[in-house]
């Protein structure tokens, strides 16, 4: 995954400019920057939910626009909101999401145990805490076959065990040749994390 000279402006007000970077297999890239520096915007551009004003995106060496579906099949995006239906149980949520993305032939129940939701598989998500709802979203990382993970503030509303779990998931993913782009305020307890500071590309001045 590579992005070059990305610029974004909303209603003629520029947010960032000339932003470039890349992740290769086994890379973890942390996007840093203060509030309003455009972390979420950048991640949404990289996940194609938003279109950049200028710049280019490449995936596996080919322009992303030419292979959108292939790229998206190879991507999991966990955004600000968990992206699950509160009226459904964790199991039901994962099973509808599993029809959108290619998944491993691994059992959904196993994934839910992995993220620490054993025994809560068939409880409506409405009754779960905010942290537990985030864990349901993290279970998507476990079942998906995607190479690239894009995570927007995955540590929000999650306890210490949860942070450890995320770090473990990231480490394991990097080891098997996956790539991760995430935004986080906290420093990660993982070796070899590269940091991209958005403050350097800001357009305020």
């Amino acid at each position: 995954m590579a992005f070059a000279a990305l610029g974004f402006e909303r209603d003629d007000v520029p947010l960032f400019d000339g932003l470039s970077g890349a992740v290769a297999a086994g890379d973890i890239l942390q996007i840093a920057g203060g509030n309003g520096s455009g972390k979420t915007t950048l991640l949404r551009i990289l996940s194609t939910a938003l279109t950049a004003t200028e710049g280019s995106l490449h995936w596996r060496g080919i322009a992303l626009a030419l292979q959108r579906a292939e790229y998206l099949a190879d991507l999991v995006f966990v955004g600000h909101s968990p992206g699950i239906k509160l009226a459904l149980t964790p199991r039901e949520n994962l099973s509808w999401l599993a029809r959108l993305y290619p998944v491993r032939e691994q059992d959904i129940a196993e994934a839910l145990v992995r993220v620490g939701l054993a025994g809560l598989e068939d409880v409506p998500c409405r009754t779960l805490s905010a942290g537990q709802q985030r864990r349901v979203a993290l279970a998507r990382l476990v079942i998906a076959r995607a190479t690239l993970w894009i995570l927007d503030e995955p540590m929000t509303a999650i306890d210490q065990d949860g942070v450890a779990l995320i770090e473990e998931l990231l480490r394991a993913h990097a080891e098997v040749g996956g790539a991760v782009i995430l935004s986080s305020h906290q420093a990660l307890n993982i070796d070899g994390v590269r940091v991209l500071d958005l403050a350097e590309y800001a357009c305020h001045d």
Binding site: A25, R99, L100, P102, R145, E175, V176, G177, G178
Partner: peptide, 29 residues
Amino acid sequence: QQAVQERLPPELLPPGEGFVGILKRDLLL
């Protein structure tokens, strides 16, 4: 054994899968 080795992209699902998934989900909801 295969650390930092380029992964192959997953195959695409047939388009009907998503249709069925969302239809079932919305009816369940």
